[in-house]
Nucleic acid binder design. Structure first.
Lengths: 192, 192
DNA sequence: AATTCGCTGCACACTGGTGTGCAACAATGG
DNA sequence: CCATTGTTGCACACCAGTGTGCAGCGAATT
């Protein structure tokens, strides 16, 4: 028999992959992809909802960790944002399925769990607005949502493969945060 | 008995509403909301796929019409974009469900039908890039997709109510097209 | 008055996914 | 060797949605 959490972790990893391709994939599909029988999945997660919740909790933990870490560096808001996107990009891409799952059935639960990340994000944008590096055409709470929403959307789109995705997401989000084009390109230039 | 297309049109209208709230709503839900029986819906649309396809065709027709119209005015690309968003906003908001439906099951069909709109959009952005009013950090085909994607996403989000949504969508999309903040605000200023 | 037409109100078969129960099996560790 | 533990392979009940068939009904048309 395998060690306690070996199979469980593999199911979680594979579930991200499978659901990333098709958010409506059933427990059977996930089980097969994990090299396991459907019944086994139910042995680890009492329901599909439980599986999704666990995945969401993981995502929130990872994102929040990155966010607090880059925040602590004390750099200017726009530079912090670039650093944040660069480091959170793989995570966002891995958990891209949450974008689709956010709607319908799990929407409310996911939205609730995402709360902490939303707050940290809004704080960062607010800081940028206060120091005049970000535009103020929208309140920080909304602007942060829209900007990170774009990053998520690009991570979930076709062009998420290769380096193009990360670069496009960073520059695009900077622009919509009100950072001038020249400054935006300079910022991403040093860490391509 | 009602006139030939009266019920059919009402079903289509209501379907947009219902699916807008919940993209996974069944034929039964749509029927009830339209004040008819499920069987009647199947009398007009042989399958759920047929209904969705009809809705998509409507959306494409309406959007393409607006797009060609504003393009013919011959204004600068950024002004044309503002005019386009202003006039297409209600349409985008009405058909916001397509954003969610684009994924899974109908995704391919919708993507195919959206082709003409994509082309017109890319042409407009290309024109803006050639006359140096739009940034060139991304190829026109991708940039147009991302920019309009944001408009669609905002139309589908919570802040789609009130005038805030349209304004936020316009300014945000302008910024990510590379239009300087001052110019963007000036552009939307004359037509709030 | 007779007919046509759109809607209704059932019935049904079918599909696909969820979640559970239980016996068996194989590996691991005392 | 024996007990524990994770996995398997079935079985089953259940649910929700889709799509179809058909008899009937009421209102408009002729």
């Amino acid at each position: 028999m395998r060690s306690l959490n070996e199979t469980r972790d593999r199911i979680l990893d594979v579930a991200l992959d499978v659901l990333g391709d098709n958010p409506d994939a059933g427990m059977g599909e996930i089980a097969s992809a994990a090299g396991v029988v459907r019944r086994t999945v139910y042995g680890h997660f009492p329901s599909r909802t439980d599986l999704v919740r666990t995945l969401t909790e993981r995502a929130v933990a990872e994102m929040a960790a990155v966010l607090t870490e880059v925040n602590a560096a004390g750099a200017e808001a726009d530079a912090t944002w670039v650093e944040f996107i660069a480091r959170v990009w793989p995570v966002t891409h891995r958990y891209r399925v949450l974008l689709a799952l956010r709607r319908g059935e799990y929407g409310e639960a996911i939205h609730g769990l995402l709360g902490p990340v939303d707050e940290l994000l809004a704080d960062l944008v607010k800081r940028g607005q206060d120091s005049d590096v970000f535009a103020q055409h929208l309140p920080a709470g909304i602007l942060s949502q829209v900007a990170y929403g774009v990053v998520f959307a690009i991570a979930d789109s076709d062009l998420s493969n290769g380096t193009l995705g990360a670069r496009a997401a960073t520059i695009t989000s900077l622009l919509m945060l009100g950072v001038p084009e020249t400054r935006a390109i300079a910022l991403v230039g040093d860490q391509p």
